[in-house]
């Protein structure tokens, strides 16, 4: 009877994944990506794979948002510098 938490976790993955695709702002997407990582880790745990859940947690909660936010920061800074050069 572990079907109920499993169904709930699968529903969370479906909602978080769909929302991640539909949202267009990268910063908002990074929040949704970390939530998707949490839900996926829960699904892996309920499918009796705690080792996969561990690595999914490490990647999903810390590394993916870090890479997305760092890229956003770099792109925005470069865009601002180019705009400033155009003004001068």
């Amino acid at each position: 009877m572990s079907d109920v938490p499993l169904a709930l976790a699968l529903a969370l993955v479906a909602v978080a994944g769909t929302a991640t695709v539909l949202v267009r702002d990268p910063v908002r997407q990074s929040f949704l990506l970390s939530l998707l990582g949490l839900a996926l880790a829960l699904v892996f745990l309920l499918f009796q794979a705690p080792d996969v859940a561990l690595s999914q947690l490490a990647v999903g909660t810390a590394l993916t948002p870090l890479m997305v936010l760092l890229s956003v920061r770099k792109v925005r800074r470069r865009a601002r510098d180019e705009r400033r050069e155009e003004h001068e």
């Binding site: 929040f31 705690p50 561990l54 490490a58 909660t61 810390a62 936010l69």
Partner: peptide
């Protein structure tokens, strides 16, 4: 053994939040 993901999440979750605080500091 299923407690181990909770332990990892207890360490990594605040690290992720601190990451957001650090990188979204201007906002």
């Amino acid at each position: 053994a299923y407690q181990d993901p909770a332990l990892v999440l207890a360490v990594l979750g605040p690290a992720g939040t601190l990451l957001y605080v650090r990188l979204l500091a201007d906002k």
